[in-house]
Amino acid sequence: MLMIGAVVFAYVGMLALCLGLERHYKQVWGRAPAPWLRVALRSAGWSALAISLWVSGVAWGWAMGPVAWFGGISLAGFGVAMLLPYWPRAMVWLAAALPLWGVLLAV
């Protein structure tokens, strides 16, 4: 479960970093993001990646955790890049996996 969480956080992080770039934000929403929003998205992105590292460390142990984390964020970033041109909205909605995971974890 924690392993899945690490991947979900990695995805959300990469998604936020991607939307933090003006060009990609426009691609999804058709308009430029407000400057504050860009900053917010970027900081959210980096924080999510950091949390992903922490969750990885807890899930895998601190020797294997960073290895899994690198793999996770790389694939998450690649997934974002591949989804963006085909299903941009679906890409954003996939972030709903995060609250879903949170609920499942709490149950």
Binding site: M3, W60, M64, V67, A68, G71, G72, S74, L75, F78
Partner: peptide, 17 residues
């Protein structure tokens, strides 16, 4: 060889890319 099947799948997909 470490980390069991989850790690194996991570490696597999990364290697595919």
């Amino acid at each position: 060889q470490f980390g069991g099947y989850p790690m194996r799948w991570l490696y597999f997909v990364c290697a595919l890319v």
